[in-house]
Deep mutational scan, measured.
Amino acid sequence: MATGGRRGAAAAPLLVAVAALLLGAAGHLYPGEVCPGMDIRNNLTRLHELENCSVIEGHLQILLMFKTRPEDFRDLSFPKLIMITDYLLLFRVYGLESLKDLFPNLTVIRGSRLFFNYALVIFEMVHLKELGLYNLMNITRGSVRIEKNNELCYLATIDWSRILDSVEDNYIVLNKDDNEECGDICPGTAKGKTNCPATVINGQFVERCWTHSHCQKVCPTICKSHGCTAEGLCCHSECLGNCSQPDDPTKCVACRNFYLDGRCVETCPPPYYHFQDWRCVNFSFCQDLHHKCKNSRRQGCHQYVIHNNKCIPECPSGYTMNSSNLLCTPCLGPCPKVCHLLEGEKTIDSVTSAQELRGCTVINGSLIINIRGGNNLAAELEANLGLIEEISGYLKIRRSYALVSLSFFRKLRLIRGETLEIGNYSFYALDNQNLRQLWDWSKHNLTITQGKLFFHYNPKLCLSEIHKMEEVSGTKGRQERNDIALKTNGDQASCENELLKFSYIRTSFDKI
């Protein structure tokens, strides 16, 4: 039985969820670079991206490699990797027998973001014989899940209580170790020597080791999670996991709180800001991140802002960003909400898709409305799209047979046209069989910064309504002859009103 693990408890099935942008060198404390989270699957090609990484700022997932063999891993080693800020997950990587050479110096898994409450997941690794993470000293947050690894031993010899604050939620089941077939031998045991430290858990006094050649490092209890030197002297209180010299914040392997210019500090002093819960960055760093993602459509890219001495992905609820200094300031009234469309555009074809934009005031991208039916549609669209004030790209209304009016965009005031449909149009209306009105132009103002209007096959939309939009939106004169079809717009509506004058002759039985 794995020490510190839980057996036999019912657990939810383990679901495996399925960018080499360097964020800056980590400095003297770390020998390499800070790398983003990685999802490495199918083959070993991307694994080489770990070569210079000291910190993975995010998670590391290595999974679904069915053609790899043990010899493929023999020359692979990433000794610079010290810390993973989120979680480490391995799933069905064939041929991998140990992690001792792959990650010989991995010391800390912070667990800032977890995989279903777990910071370390080893699942269905069919050839893994031992973990071998002999320098792993601290899992700051989260638990361990090690399950269905039929060859995995050296679990009962690990004292997880020396690595985690609590072992109650560890789930370590259905491994070879369960069948008591392992016969784990710690260093020196074969020669009758006791080389590794022994600890007591559940009444068992057991030597602690990761492999037959690597003991588990056990520091004096007084050192807590700070770690200790090879001689057993406690590291500085700002260290986490390990250090090369005692009581020196510049000799830590990793930091308990924050890293700044080669030393570990309790908090980031001005003019620095907390970033990702582990390091200090200056304003320029946060500003660069903001600008890199301002026009990016890459998933996970955030326009970072500053709030409460932190550089964070977005302002919290009730705050909006001051564009001059990136500071989050309290909103006066309802907060603006910028919604970034991942692929640059979004099609609204149902109430469900409209709900995804609920509360958005600025759309960074283009909207395509293609709704053919739905219950209580006008009210639903207004509830979900009615706060949109600005669209950076274009607005396209296409084959939306259920629409009679666009009044559900009740606050839309600006279409920038930074991206144009077919390279020309910022407003595009095609084949809307029941569209009769755009907006009530006596109450609604709309500016279209650039781009043209396109109207074709809107049989109940009168040309007068379209011409009014040209005047109000500032697009009059931009359109070419064929942009607004004269014969297919309003051709099934009563669009022309003329005053009919009647004269009559009164007659009676005795007068003409």
Results as ranks from 00 to 15, higher is better:
residue 262 G to V: 02
residue 157 T to E: 14
residue 283 F to N: 11
residue 111 G to R: 00
residue 203 G to A: 09
residue 85 T to V: 06
residue 238 E to S: 08
residue 317 S to D: 10
residue 62 I to D: 00
residue 130 E to T: 05
residue 319 Y to H: 11
residue 132 G to D: 04
residue 159 D to G: 09
residue 53 C to T: 00
residue 63 L to R: 09
residue 101 D to T: 14
residue 80 K to G: 11
residue 209 C to D: 02
residue 302 H to F: 15
residue 255 C to A: 01
residue 297 R to K: 12
residue 139 I to F: 03
residue 166 S to F: 05
residue 283 F to W: 05
residue 295 N to F: 12
residue 57 E to S: 07
residue 110 R to V: 04
residue 83 M to E: 12
residue 229 T to F: 07
residue 56 I to V: 05
residue 290 H to R: 03
residue 46 R to S: 13
residue 227 G to E: 02
residue 70 P to A: 09
residue 112 S to W: 08
residue 292 K to C: 11
residue 321 M to Q: 13
residue 260 L to V: 11
residue 328 C to Q: 02
residue 253 V to G: 08
residue 134 Y to T: 02
residue 329 T to H: 06
residue 278 W to Y: 10
residue 105 N to V: 04
residue 284 S to H: 02
residue 256 R to C: 03
residue 284 S to K: 01
residue 303 Q to H: 12
residue 147 E to A: 14
residue 109 I to V: 11
residue 118 Y to F: 13
residue 284 S to W: 09
residue 139 I to L: 07
residue 30 Y to R: 01
residue 41 R to H: 02
residue 289 L to W: 03
residue 86 D to R: 02
residue 56 I to Y: 00
residue 47 L to V: 03
residue 200 V to P: 14
residue 53 C to G: 00
residue 121 V to D: 00
residue 73 F to S: 06
residue 267 T to E: 05
residue 174 L to T: 14
residue 111 G to F: 00
residue 84 I to E: 00
residue 283 F to M: 08
residue 265 V to A: 10
residue 241 G to D: 02
residue 278 W to T: 13
residue 209 C to N: 06
residue 78 F to L: 07
residue 316 P to D: 12
residue 55 V to L: 05
residue 143 S to L: 09
residue 251 K to S: 06
residue 195 N to A: 10
residue 178 D to W: 13
residue 98 S to V: 01
residue 85 T to F: 02
residue 312 I to M: 09
residue 208 R to V: 00
residue 300 G to A: 10
residue 293 C to A: 06
residue 74 R to W: 04
residue 164 L to G: 15
residue 297 R to L: 06
residue 324 S to R: 12
residue 213 S to T: 03
residue 247 D to K: 06
residue 36 P to I: 07
residue 204 Q to V: 10
residue 43 N to H: 06
residue 154 Y to P: 14
residue 226 H to T: 13
residue 95 G to N: 07
residue 157 T to K: 05
residue 50 L to F: 05
residue 45 T to M: 08
residue 198 A to N: 10
residue 288 D to P: 02
residue 89 L to M: 15
residue 185 I to Y: 08
residue 248 D to H: 03
residue 244 S to R: 13
residue 188 G to W: 14
residue 36 P to G: 15
residue 305 V to K: 12
residue 156 A to S: 07
residue 75 D to L: 09
residue 314 E to Q: 03
residue 124 E to A: 03
residue 53 C to N: 00
residue 96 L to T: 01
residue 195 N to G: 05
residue 283 F to D: 12
residue 136 L to M: 01
residue 38 M to N: 12
residue 135 N to P: 04
residue 65 M to G: 06
residue 162 R to S: 07
residue 85 T to P: 00
residue 135 N to V: 01
residue 66 F to Q: 04
residue 238 E to N: 09
residue 227 G to A: 06
residue 210 W to V: 06
residue 116 F to L: 13
residue 83 M to V: 06
residue 45 T to F: 04
residue 56 I to P: 00
residue 176 K to E: 11
residue 306 I to C: 06
residue 94 Y to N: 07
residue 64 L to Q: 02
residue 253 V to S: 15
residue 189 T to D: 10
residue 60 L to V: 07
residue 108 V to C: 07
residue 241 G to M: 02
residue 330 P to L: 07
residue 103 F to W: 03
residue 266 E to V: 13
residue 205 F to Q: 14
residue 226 H to M: 10
residue 203 G to N: 12
residue 255 C to E: 00
residue 126 V to L: 15
residue 162 R to N: 15
residue 267 T to L: 03
residue 249 P to Y: 03
residue 90 L to M: 14
residue 205 F to T: 13
residue 51 E to H: 13
residue 110 R to T: 05
residue 52 N to L: 06
residue 241 G to P: 02
residue 218 V to Q: 12
residue 156 A to Y: 15
residue 276 Q to K: 06
residue 28 H to G: 00
residue 200 V to K: 03
residue 272 Y to P: 00
residue 317 S to K: 03
residue 187 P to Q: 05
residue 299 Q to N: 09
residue 178 D to A: 15
residue 334 P to H: 13
residue 38 M to I: 10
residue 328 C to N: 01
residue 124 E to C: 04
residue 189 T to Y: 04
residue 123 F to L: 14
residue 300 G to P: 13
residue 56 I to N: 00
residue 92 R to S: 06
residue 191 K to S: 10
residue 323 S to F: 12
residue 235 C to L: 01
residue 170 N to I: 08
residue 201 I to L: 13
residue 240 L to V: 07
residue 245 Q to K: 07
residue 130 E to N: 10
residue 175 N to R: 10
residue 194 T to V: 07
residue 105 N to D: 06
residue 320 T to P: 03
residue 252 C to L: 00
residue 130 E to Y: 13
residue 169 D to N: 13
residue 182 C to R: 12
residue 104 P to S: 01
residue 216 Q to P: 02
residue 305 V to Y: 04
residue 209 C to A: 12
residue 49 E to S: 15
residue 235 C to Y: 01
residue 336 P to Q: 04
residue 65 M to W: 01
residue 330 P to D: 15
residue 229 T to Q: 07
residue 224 K to E: 13
residue 60 L to Q: 00
